[in-house]
Structures are given as C-alpha cells and as structure tokens.
Design a protein around this nucleic acid. Sequence first.
DNA 1: GGCTGCTATGTTATCGATACCATGCGCGAC
DNA 2: GTCGCGCATGGTATCGATAACATAGCAGCC
Lengths: 336, 336
Amino acid sequence: MSDDVEKPRIRMRDVARRAGVSAITVSRVLSAPDKVAPETRAAVWSAVEALGYVPNLAAGTLKSQRSRIVAAIVPTLRNAIFAETVEGMADALRAEGYQLLLAASGYDPAIEEASVMAFLGRQPDGLILTGIEHSDAVRARLAAARLPVVETWDLGASPIDMLVGFSNYDAGAAITRDLARSGYRRIAFAGTEREARAVQRRAGYRDAVRALGMPATEVAVAAAGLSIADGADVIARLLAEGGGADAVFFANDYLAFGALVECQRRGVPVPGQLAIAGFGDFEIARESLPGLTTVRIPGYAIGREAAGLVMRRLAGAAVDRRIVDLGFEIVRRASA
Amino acid sequence: MSDDVEKPRIRMRDVARRAGVSAITVSRVLSAPDKVAPETRAAVWSAVEALGYVPNLAAGTLKSQRSRIVAAIVPTLRNAIFAETVEGMADALRAEGYQLLLAASGYDPAIEEASVMAFLGRQPDGLILTGIEHSDAVRARLAAARLPVVETWDLGASPIDMLVGFSNYDAGAAITRDLARSGYRRIAFAGTEREARAVQRRAGYRDAVRALGMPATEVAVAAAGLSIADGADVIARLLAEGGGADAVFFANDYLAFGALVECQRRGVPVPGQLAIAGFGDFEIARESLPGLTTVRIPGYAIGREAAGLVMRRLAGAAVDRRIVDLGFEIVRRASA
DNA sequence: GGCTGCTATGTTATCGATACCATGCGCGAC
DNA sequence: GTCGCGCATGGTATCGATAACATAGCAGCC
C-alpha cells in the first residue's frame, strides 16, 4: 500500500545549508527574529517555506528546558461548565505562542493524579488545576517540579502556588439570602456531595439559612450531578417527601433546568408554587422559559487570568497577587 | 520568595545508580518490563519511587521518534457536540498509554491549518481531524509527514488517509422523509452555511423534499449557528415571512431547542402548528418538553474508532477498511 | 588611532533517553 | 565435553535543536 521510501526528515541544518547560513541562525530566525539581519532572515524564511520545514520541538524542549506547553486539568469537557475557562486559557496561551495540553479528570482525584504524573513527563512550563483540593502526592510532585501552578474556580488561604477563582461559599450564601429577600421562607438546596465546590456552595447555603432562622433542606444528587435528568429527579423526591419547600437552589444550571422542566411536566407553577435558582449562568439559563435565576461565574476570565499568571511568572515577572478573586454576580430572572 | 537552590533534576542514570543497574535497564523496566528479570525490575521500581523519578519524554521522543501523542482538532469545545467524540478518543488513547493533544478550530480553516502546523512540531504519532474539507496546505503537510490521519464526522470517497463517520447527506434526507411520512407537507430547513456538515445535511434535505414533490424553504443561520438564541431567531423570521411551514428540520439540537422555547413564548403549539426536528440527540433533546425528534449520532464511537484506527496502524497492523461508516439513527419524540 | 562596545553570525558541547550492537552466562543437545 | 542458543544486561552513539561562548566587522568616542 504505502511505499516505504523513507524520505529523510528535513532538519534545521538542511534549511541552513539551503539558505547559506548556519543552523543556529535558522534557530534564531524562528525564535528571535530581531537578532538576525533582515536579508538573512528573508533567505532563511524562504528556505523554510521551500522545504516545508517543521522544527522538531522535542529536540528544542530537551535542550532549552522550555516546552512552551501549559498543561491543564479540568473535571469534565462533557458539558459547557468549564468550556469557557478552557477557551480563556487557550486564547491567552495561543496569543503568546504556547500550547495547551488538556485532560479531564472526571471529578476523580485518582485520575487527576495520574494526569499530573503523565503531564510532568512532557515538561510543561506551567500547570493549571481546577479546585483547591489535591492529593498529597500531587502537591509533593508539583513542589518538586518547581513550575508555576495555578489553581482555579475556588478560593482558599493556602494555594500550592497561585490561585484564581471566586468564593463558592459566598456565592451559595449570597443567592440564598437573595431568595430570602424575595420572600421565600423554606429554601432547599440540591447538589452532589462529590464535588468540593458544590459542597462549598452548600455550606454557604446552610449557614445563610441558619442565620436567617430558616430550616435547611438538603437533597443529595447522585454521582457527578451534572445531568438535566438528575434535576428532574430532585423534584420528584422533593414532592414525594412533601417537605413544603417554596424555593430550591441547585448547585448548577443543568440540575435547575431539569427541575424546571419536571415542574412543567407535573403542572407545578414556577415560581408560583416552587421557585428555582441555578448556578453558573450557562446559555440554557438565559434561554429557558422562564429564565433561570442563577449565579454568573467569570469562567472565561478565570481561564485567561490563570494562563496570564503562568506566563507572567515564566517571563520572569514577580507576581504580586498570588490569589486573585474574580467574584461572582447574582442574575435574577423569572424562575425565582 | 522562592529559594533558588536548583535541585538537580533526577535523571534516568540517577535511578540506575541507586538500583545498581545501567540506564538502559531502567529504560526497559519503564517501557518493556517483560525483558527484565523480576528482581531487577523490583529494584528499579523502588528506586523510581524513592527518587520520585519522572522520565523526560522530550528526550525519549527525540531518540525514539515516537511521542505517544495523538493530536486532534475539533471545531469547538464550547458546547457538547464534539464532547463525546473527544471522550471516546481520550478513553481509547489512555487505555493504550497515549496522550491526547487537543485544539479547537472555531470552524475556521485558517485556525485548523495553524493548529496542524503547530501540532506537527510536537511529533504526534497520529492526527485526527473533524470533517473532510481541509486546505491544500494541510493535505500537503500531512502527506509529507507520513503519519496516520483519521478524518471524522462525515463520509467521502477520497480521505487523506482514513475516515470514520456517517453520511450527513443521508441523515438529512432520512429525517426529512421521516417528517413527510408523519404527514408534514411544508418542511423547512434551518442551519448555518458555514459548516460543511450542516451544508451536507441541507443538501440531503433539499433533494429529499424535491423527490417528494414538496417546496424547499431554507433559513440560513448566522455564523456558527450553534446557540439556542439562533434557533429562537429562526422562528421569529419564519413566522414573519409567513411561509406557512408546518415542520422545521434544524441542523442541530441547540437550534431546535431554541426554536421550541420561542414557540412556547409565542404560544405556537408544537407540534400542532409547527413540528420541530433537531440533529445530534444531545441531552437537551431528551429532556426538553416536548422531547425533540432528532438524529442520533454515534459521537463516542466515532472518537473511539478513530483513535483505534490510529493505534492499530501504529502497531503495524494493516488497516483493512480505511472508511468506516458508523451510521445514524432517527429518534422520534413528541416534537414532530 | 586605538580602544570599547555593539551587531550579526558561527563553533562546540550538551540536553536525557533509547536503538543498536555486544557480551556474559546458563542450559540443553548431540 | 563442546557447541550453540536464548536470556539478561551493558556500552556507545545518536536523535535535532539550542545555550554558551567565540569571533568578525564596524561605528563611535576620547
């Protein structure tokens, strides 16, 4: 089928010979063009074009100890939650000539750990993690590897290195108080216990209802708790229990949307009989009917800022603020 | 802040010294353990553990000319369309110890080209692309690079190398005929013109309505045409034009969902006055009210099979079928 | 005028792992 | 008993780019 005439790969020295210069000059044209005279630069450029030369970055990385790769681990790519953050990272990195090496952990610390190990061998120049809970093994490896590390999507006092996010606790408390301000008196919470950030939101909710002197009703959602169907399930259970909640704060908009649809199926007026609030301000929150009251998260900005911090550190700049709080915003729509 | 005591990195020879063997033996323990005696293997293992050794894969890649990286380019990660395909690839690759290098092209051929160029320098062992339309420059580079290439999500007679997908044309025609079979007589189509696969679906639609002796009504959706809001916009325009369509086939489920919600806002009964069909069978199609009639795509299987083909080729196996048609399936729900 | 300093380019050694070939040893076959 | 074969392991060269150092040429300055 394929003819096995192995064309020899084109190396830097082939380009150099054709352009009548040395290999190091080709290297400079590609990575620091300012240091080369314009005519030389042009000659090298045209040799590169003519030969279709593609530099072997494995060799460059080996010698220079810089890969121009930043690795990132997010919990999932399955739905849109972290998509904006990934885009923010990718955009910022691409602008500076970095590439993004990406893995999804499926919310599983063991997979996160395995991904970190696998990544480190690729000599990334920096690493971006989601959340602030990481295994001791991960912390130890990252400390030993001495690379810029940014944790994201949460806040905490003692990051591994740098941290960009917002307070899930405060956000959970804020939307709970907002619901109370709107007159709801029996506010429930629904979310998974398997995700640290959802647990933080729950803690904020819990402390807020207590401070308000209201009862707390918590519904645990199975597994990752990211599917629309899970939200429908919560409504079924709430109504079956007959707890009499008049509002539910869901740990994310998918759950909230599923709940909304289930209420419609059952003829439960929203927000008349039951108010619904979500978290994340995904597109579906804007476009559902009624629109979902929710908490807007600066997902894109988190990604951009995280990548920016890594690159600033790599550029040798001292990063003044190691902890960046990008905040959140309550978005009121018709569902609550 | 950080103490600049540069701990020397741990190299393979450090592990070797500690285990009382040579570097090459360590290499073998890590990549071909069967070739090493059990006690030696155990000694090396414990030295690796004790030192926290992480192999420098840049060096390994340079010498061995194998990176154990497969690169993939998908149009977008912003919504769930390609998420299952990416997961399928990642799962299959991880099982064999490969890593996935991922980029999103934003449906822009120029970005796809730039990503291909950027990837090739990393010496990927294989490449997975979305769609069958690629610039001449991309084709030329890939031919020169002589690596396994899989195109996905479409069918065609002359792939660059291998191809895994389904016929967007047939799928568009099939759902159109299905709508006709359900009694709809003025079936419209709405989708972007900027995506080759949506255009194929439209072509299938167009030929099907013509064969049925029905009028064709096509509504072009701006830009990528992936947002829920775009679907609502289509309804606004269709009703304003007063074309009298009794069913609309949307190029994807997000558009269809947006249309569904807009109909509810306007009090247009679905499917009573207007039937709606989507494409993709995303979660929202199952969970909307009414459920969306749509076309189910084997997204996960496409990813798995594409990665599998690459790895089989790398393992030296002759790939018998270079074109794999995974088909599609019409899913009837209440919206049409 | 000679010295300093800057720009443009070249020479050499090296990054760390692995392919290739070599070697030593034990064991079975004739 | 000797030969040969296979298994386990090691020595050395090498992958291709770039850091570090070297050098040549030229301008400007006291």
